[in-house]
């Protein structure tokens, strides 16, 4: 996600507010546009068929509460010290309460 934030200002809040209630777009399309993944629109025709299939299979799925993560990706991400350190600012200074246990 961090990398995406760098690119020509996708993820703009106002943009989402505008797209949110645009009924011509499916939620998947809204999010694609919002994330600025529209650039790939150049590839058309025979690839379009492929995408439609992919979309259909996504629509076949049931609702999930837990998103489907790729755990290998996650493992890679969180064993990277840089990401690990970046998250530290979200953590209260630990061990101050004297119950850090073991």
């Amino acid at each position: 996600a961090r990398k995406l934030h760098g690119r020509k200002r996708p993820y703009r809040t106002g943009e989402l507010a505008r797209l949110l209630y645009d009924d011509n777009l499916t939620p998947t399309e809204v999010l694609k546009r919002w994330r600025g993944e529209e650039d790939e629109e150049a590839e058309v025709e025979d690839e379009e068929e492929f995408f439609r299939k992919a979309k259909e299979s996504a629509a076949e799925q049931d609702d999930r509460m837990i998103p489907d993560y790729d755990y290998e990706e996650l493992e890679k991400k969180w064993t990277d010290p840089e990401n690990f350190e970046a998250l530290r600012k979200r953590i209260a200074a630990g061990g101050l309460h004297g119950r850090s246990g073991d």
Binding site: I66, Y69, Y71, L74, E75, K77, W78, L87, R90
Partner: peptide, 12 residues
Amino acid sequence: RKCAFQLLEAVE
């Protein structure tokens, strides 16, 4: 481990 990573992801 998976669960721990998933938690970190949610916190992030």
